[in-house]
Structures are given as C-alpha cells and as structure tokens.
Design a protein around this nucleic acid. Structure first.
Lengths: 190, 190
DNA sequence: GTGCACATGTAATGTGTTACATGATTAT
DNA sequence: ATAATCATGTAACACATTACATGTGCAC
C-alpha cells in the first residue's frame, strides 16, 4: 500500500515543526492533546523507518557529537514536506467528516506556514458543507427514532453525536470569519 | 487476545436488538449513523465467526425453510448477552473519553432494556467527571499555545476539539437530568 | 552501585482493509 | 437471458498492540 497512514501523517506534521527523535514524538503523543495516538514504540519506530525508506524523513548527522545519547533525530526532507502539503491540501470529503478521525483536524492544524490562507478557508468551507449535509441527514434519522422510541438511551446517544457536530459547525463558521477578515495580518503563506 | 474488539461489541449490540444476518449488519453499517464501522465483508464475516466460536452468537435454525436465500441469521446467546452487559457496564475511564471512539456512545446507546437505569446514570456521572477534567487540562494547554502563537490554525483546531467536548458535557448534564427525573416512567431494567 | 529515566528495537499476535471469487434470486 | 442485487466467503497485506529485550547516562 502506497497510502500514508494517519500515524505517519501525524509524524511528518510534527517533524515539520521541528526535528525530533522517536522518543520525543512518543512523549508528545503521551502527554499532549494528541494522546489518541498510541505512544507505543512498536508503532512509532517502525513508522519512522517506513518514512525514512520513502525518503520523507532523514536522520540528521548520524555521528552527532553534541548528543551523547544514541538518539536519532529526524528532520523532514523536501520530498516529505511535499507529501505533507499534499495530504494537508486534500479536499474535505463526506467520508472525512463521518470518520472524524483525529486526522481531519490535524490537517487543519498543520496548515500554519505550509499552505496559503486560501487553502485553510477552502478547508473550512468544505468542512461546513459536508458536515452540514451529514448532520441534516442524521437529524432526519433522529426524528424517525424519536417517533418509534421514547426518550431512551439510544436516542440520547444519537443526539449527543449530532450536538457535537453542531458545535463543530459553529466553530467552523467562526474560524472562517476570523481567517477571512485577517487580510491585514501577516500572510500564512510559507 | 481474549479482549472483545469494538466491531465485535457493535455486532452483539445490534444482534441483541434483533436476530440478523451478516448482510443485514453490513447494511446497517453502510446506511445508518454507524457508518464509521466498515461494511466490508472481510471484517464482518470473520468477526461473526469469532463470536460464534466463543459461543456468544448462534445461527438460528440452520435449515430454515421460511427463508429461501442462503442467509445465516444470528441471534445472541445467553453467554453473549452476559458479555454485552459486562462491556456496557464498564466504568467510563479517562482513556475512554480521550479516545472518543464510536465505542463509548455505543455503550450508552445499547443500555436500553439491558441494564438498570442506575447504570446509565452512573455512566453519565463518570462521563462528566472524566471528560470535564480532561477538558480542563486541555484548556490549560490552549492558554499556553495562545501565548506563544497568534490565532493560527493550530490553536483553532485545538479549540474545535475543546468546544466539541464542551458540547458533549452539556449534553451529559441534560441527559442526566432527563433520566434522573424519569422516576415515573417505566423502568429500563430488563 | 543500584535504580530510574532515557532511547531504540524486535517478535508474536490479532485484526481491519482491499480485492477477488462464488453462487443464488429477483427484476426486466 | 442477463443484469443487478443478495449473500457469503477467502487471501494478501499492512498495521497497531503487547510484551519483551537491550543498552546508556544520571542521581542518590
């Protein structure tokens, strides 16, 4: 499979921000908001080797004297940056909003300094459109459920999902307004 | 591994509602709000065979005359129902709310008619407590981010996650009020 | 000098994904 | 009759998880 996995995407996104070792990346997954990624060595080190084999990342200065520990600090290569930008710039599809992986918001988060502001605005527009239409469909299903069942947990759980999505829709509208009006601010373009 | 997977849990939860064939279950995953589960035959049929091997589900009436198609309709066994109830009744941990899999809300949704109302209330209390403390932690991280970066996409994406969780917290409070006051309604107990 | 955090790695296992294969029934 | 849908299955592959293994440097 030539497809990049969600973990691999997270790794190159973090490496774009600054060169790091596998251990550093594990600690990020273990302690920050990216906790939903496993910090197990069995996933991260193999993923790093896959990325290295593809030429997207490279260990910098194999015989680094400044670092006595046997750390391997990786940096993003030019090809890696291209792959990152390509992944970030993917249009937001209905599948994306349904699966709601950590992946989607990570795509938006990694846009800083990597793509023009227009791409971020496009993301938000797509996101609003796809999520909006999906929520509308779910609301229809909710009405049907409410008709057949009373207030029981199935309906309530369903409602929880819908309300979470509505909060995200609301966020997207505000974020778009913020980014759109920021014509005076320094451009995001790399 | 003796652990039940998220897919297996979804399958026995659906089979508890009514006996169904693998194809029926696939269609549910393909067309309803449970779309985040794959409807690929390569995942569902092997999972059904695993559940059958464990004795949690059974094909009813192998030589059903009423159904000319060669469907295998599965029903939940007593052991299967026990496993379902055990999984549903698990306390909500911090890990659960962080991973936010489809799993957690499914647990709540499948409570109808399977566990006493107290279990549902307990779920909501745990959920509020764990998610509340996690959101608080994330809000601290957000403030740090906001200090170092301007309004850029990383901060915005972070905020989106927090707002989604806050919507769920709000939902949990309302759901708890609804379930708690419903002393007059027919009990959920099986 | 013993324990702990740092740092990387491998092997076994289970499972989801993709793609392909097969055959029955219904509709046209 | 022939296409589409129903219905189940398998094989190859990639990947995550878990558990184990190994070694370094620092603190007490």
């Amino acid at each position: 499979m030539n497809q990049i996995s969600s973990l691999e995407f997270a790794l190159i996104g973090l490496l774009q921000q600054r060169p790091q070792s596998g251990y550093d990346l594990r600690k990020t997954f273990a302690t920050t908001a990216m906790r939903h990624y496993s910090d197990s060595p069995g996933s991260i080190y193999p993923a790093l080797r896959r990325l290295e084999a593809r030429g997207w990342i490279a260990a910098q200065d194999p015989t680094q004297p400044a670092d006595s520990r046997r750390r391997r600090v990786f940096r993003l290569t030019t090809a890696g940056k291209e792959a990152l930008v390509a992944r970030i710039s993917l249009p937001v599809t209905r599948e994306d909003v349904i699966w709601q992986g950590p992946e989607l918001m990570l795509r938006f988060a990694f846009m800083d300094g990597n793509v023009p502001r227009a791409t971020a605005l496009r993301f938000l527009e797509d996101f609003e459109r796809e999520l909006g239409s999906y929520v509308e469909e779910l609301r229809g299903q909710l009405e049907q459920m409410r008709a057949s069942f009373p207030i029981h947990t199935g309906v309530l759980a369903f409602q929880s999902g819908i309300e979470g999505m509505e909060a995200q829709l609301d966020w997207a509208r505000r974020a778009r307004a913020l980014l759109g009006e920021a014509g005076a601010a320094p451009p995001m373009q790399c």
